[in-house]
Every structure is written in structure tokens, then in C-alpha cells.
Design a protein around this nucleic acid. Structure first.
Lengths: 149, 149
DNA sequence: CTGTGTGCAAACTCTTTGCATAAGT
DNA sequence: ACTTATGCAAAGAGTTTGCACACAG
């Protein structure tokens, strides 16, 4: 059994063996493609990326994966809690490498997602869920517009 | 004057002449289709509807409009401030007949959008916009899950 | 009449799927 | 070997576009 360096700083660089362990712990076979994609995802701090974006990036860096595999992988990672899906505007789905409780800025002009620094936003009072429902999550999106000069 | 009156008995809050005026004020020619769609939209209190939903509803009520026209109309209404686009999850776009400041519940199980009763939610502290940006809107989505029995 | 709106079908974008092949353990 | 993952291309959902015809002013 590989001993996993239990020292992952929340974000930032993760070594290849760390990634293999992360995948194993999530019940995902550490295949070439998954490892490569995980490296792209987790080697740059927090990222908010779409499937197409990640696919392009992979091809650019000579990691030949198919778009279908990118989609599969992103969804598997999401199910395993390694990623979180971010619902902002636009038709694209974004995946966030930061799975902690936090909220987002969304730049309307160029469909970009950014984290809101922790502590800068307080969701005041959360309403009661209607009967028969429970709250699964509260998402806040602060939409931004570029100031025209 | 056109005389193609279908049977419409909407228990509406806005009468047909009101709707015509509303469209005119927004710079939209009150055509048959726009009037009919506006009647569907505004005669039942607040609604959260997708283009496909509205199209189906129109056909059901013998208002023959094409899907393309429904999309055009929804977007024109949105630009004119008559509707508001709601960004929740899912791939569909929802349009909200309530353009006041308010937030939403989103039922994950069946992709349904509901208003959060006014006053039940307080957005605590809103973060500062990053330099060069201004806040255009803050959207809060409280995601709900049906409680399994 | 003049210009805008509409309908239709085809195009487009993003995402999912089916199935044969490749790779992990 | 046995099983799961991948790649490809095709299909699917939602949305948009281009152009001829219809309608409002």
C-alpha cells in the first residue's frame, strides 16, 4: 500500500504520487488520462474551468485526451467530491477545484468565474425550506460588469 | 383591425389593452404573437418558465407560435426589462416574470424554480467588486432536495 | 406601401452515448 | 485474464440564424 503523503495543502501543487493516491481514495483507477487531467486541474491553485477549456489545455500541453473522456472525468471527479460544479450564467458548465464552502463572482462580459475571498460575503438569513424539502446548498453569485473607461 | 380572436379566458391581472400599452412602451410592436405570449406570461402571477415550456403552453392553448419566435420574444422582453433571466443550474434558461429584486429556490430533483418570499433572505455583507469592475447584481440560489420518505 | 416580425428548417454549441479497442491491476 | 476506461463518431438537447413571406402601422 502506497503511503500517501497526508500533507496536502488545500490548493496548489500536488505531486504525481499524491494525485494517484487521491484518485485511489476516490475509487477511481489512476489512469494516464485521469492523472494528466488531475495534474492540470490541481497544479495551479483554484481553477474554474469548462470541459472544453480543459480539453484545449490538455491538447496544448500534449496530453492527448478525447473530449468525451474530459467530460467523463470531470463528472467522476465531481461525484467523488474532488470537484464542484458551479452554476453561473451562460450555457457552459464550470467546474471548480475548490470544494470548500464559498461563493463566486461572475464577470458577465467574458464569462469568467472567480472565487469570492472567504469571509468577504455573509449570507444573512437563510429562508426555511418549503415543506417536504431540505436545503442542499446556498449559492451566491455576484455578477460583475466591467467598468467602461 | 385583426379579428383572429381565439377563445382566451385568462383570469389575468393585465388586460389585453394594458399589454398592448406595455409592449408599446417597451418599443415593441404589439403583434399577435407577442400579445399572446405576454398574456400567457403575465396572467398567472409570477412565473418561471423556459422557452420550451412557454412554447408548449402556447400550442396547448391554441396559440400557434414557432419556437424561434418564442425565443426571440423572450429575449426582446428581457432586454426591455419585462422579464428577467434566471441563472440556476441545469442547461435550460429560465425567464422570470418578476423583475423585482428577489432570489430563488431551485429544486434539484425536478429543475423547478420558485421565488423566495421577500424578506426571508438577507444577503449579509456584499464583497467589494475587484478593481475595474462594478457589481451588476447579486443572485442567491437556495438549492433544495426533496426529502425522501 | 414600408419596414419589422414570424415561421421554418437548417446550423450551431455543448454535452451524452454506444460500442469496439486499449489499458490498469 | 478480467474489468474498467478511453476514443471516436454519431446522436441529443437547447438555442440561434437566414431567408422568404406575412403583418402592423
Amino acid at each position: 500500500m502506497t503511503q500517501i503523503e497526508k500533507h496536502h495543502h488545500q490548493h496548489g501543487e500536488r505531486s504525481r504520487p499524491e494525485i494517484r493516491g487521491m484518485l485511489r481514495q476516490s475509487g477511481l483507477r489512476p489512469t494516464r488520462q485521469r492523472i494528466a487531467l488531475a495534474e492540470l486541474l490541481y497544479s495551479k491553485g483554484n481553477r474554474h474551468i469548462s470541459a472544453e477549456g480543459l480539453h484545449e489545455e490538455a491538447l496544448t500541453k500534449n496530453v492527448p485526451v478525447s473530449l468525451a473522456t474530459v467530460y467523463n472525468t470531470l463528472h467522476q471527479f465531481t461525484e467523488s467530491g474532488l470537484l464542484r460544479e458551479v452554476a453561473v450564467d451562460g450555457s457552459k458548465t464550470y467546474f471548480d477545484t475548490n470544494v470548500d464552502d464559498h461563493h463566486h463572482f461572475f464577470v458577465e462580459d467574458d464569462n469568467e468565474v472567480m472565487d469570492i475571498p472567504h469571509g468577504q460575503l455573509g449570507v444573512g438569513r437563510v429562508p426555511e425550506a418549503p415543506a417536504g424539502y431540505e436545503i442542499s446548498r446556498v449559492d451566491v453569485v455576484v455578477r460583475l460588469r466591467r467598468i467602461k473607461v
